[in-house]
Structures are given as structure tokens and as C-alpha cells.
Amino acid sequence: MTSEHLTIGVLAVQGAFEAHAQVLRSLGVNAPLVRLPEDLASLDGLILPGGESTTFLKHLERNNFFAALDTFVRQKPSFGTCAGTILLAKDVRNPVQKSLAVLDATVERNAYGRQIDSTIQETETTLPGGPMEMVYIRAPRIAAVGNDVEVLARRNGDPVLVREGRILAATFHPELSTDRRVHEFFVEMVRREKLAHSATEAHAG
């Protein structure tokens, strides 16, 4: 199976969805924009982009979108960046807010300061290929993670790229860099999940 057969949606109620869609398309993946609950049907995976998490929640309140997304992220690979990570985390602080609670992590909003404190850093990761450029925009901080969460990169001790099963989450913005490794890693997660799923189905049939 090639990546041409993969369809990874990008949640597009607001935020940096277009930048993510462009990266996915450059990797040969179909990348439809997801603005309504019915857009989640037939996706192999989903990216929840950066933006304003309070705005996302407002849109998700309508038409049972939150419930549909809640079901989706428990069944299919999902990748959150920045506000997307806030949405995926189990515990959100500063302020406390509702979330999908599918990633065993505590996330503090705007924990590194305002826009003036936004920064670009080079950081080591567990992905092959050397240090990675990481763009942080009014970034949240992952303050704690559960035992089942694998930390793929840290910034001064804080996890910044983590994985728990089907969930991948970053507090930085790989879609704003030219380095494609995080997206490639997620596309591979989606590909394997789809293969495993179709193998199970074939076996059952």
C-alpha cells in the first residue's frame, strides 16, 4: 500500500489547518479539511492543528461535533499540535477547560509566556536524522505525562513531542518548518494502523 491511498483529515474549524494540509499533500496524502462531524467519515487519521483552543471548543459544541471527535480519536490515529495537543490532553490548566482526554498528560496553556516569548529552537529527538528545528508560538507546556506515554523530545526537561498508542502530540509547530520528519512519522503511524486494521478484517472474513 502506498501513501496515495491514505486520507488524513485536518480539523479546520480555525487555525493553522492549511499549513498542515500542504505538508500532508507534499507527502502524497489526501488531506481534506474537516469542518463538520460528517467530514470525519472515511478518514484514516486526523490532525488537530494549532489555533485557539477556546475557539475550537466553541465550534465543537455545535451539532454533536465534540462527541463525534471523541469517538474518532479513540479509534483512529490522531496528531495534535499546540492547541490540538491541548484538546487531546486529559488534564488542561490555566485555565481549566474541557478536552477529549485521550492523551494521559497535564497541559498548561500559554505556559512559556505571550507572543514576545515565542521562539525557534534546535532540539534532539528520538527520531533519526539529528536535531530538529522546533517553532513555538505562545506554546502550551506538557507538565506531566502518564506511564504509557512515550516522550520523543524534550525542551529543558519538558516533553514537547509525545506518543501514546494512536495519539501523537507536539507543543511546537512542525507544519511551520521545512523538516518533514514529524509528519512522516505520523503518516507511518496511520499507514500501519490501516494495514493492521485491514489484516484483522481479512482474517475475520
Binding site: 479546520a12 474549524v13 480555525q14 487555525g15 493553522a16 489547518f17 492549511e18 499549513a19 494549532g50 489555533g51 485557539e52 475557539t55 499546540c82 492547541a83 507572543q115 515565542s118 521562539t119 525557534i120 517553532v135 508560538i137 505562545r138 509547530h173 511551520l176
Partner: peptide, 17 residues
């Protein structure tokens, strides 16, 4: 270039709103 990328980066986050 770093400075401007951080600046336009925030503008990216504000899109669709």
C-alpha cells in the same frame, strides 16, 4: 528570517477566525 517566521507564525494560528 527567524523573527518574521515567529511573527507570521502567530498570524497562521489566527486563520479562519
Amino acid at each position: 528570517g527567524t523573527g518574521l517566521r515567529l511573527k507570521t507564525g502567530l498570524a497562521e494560528m489566527l486563520k479562519g477566525g
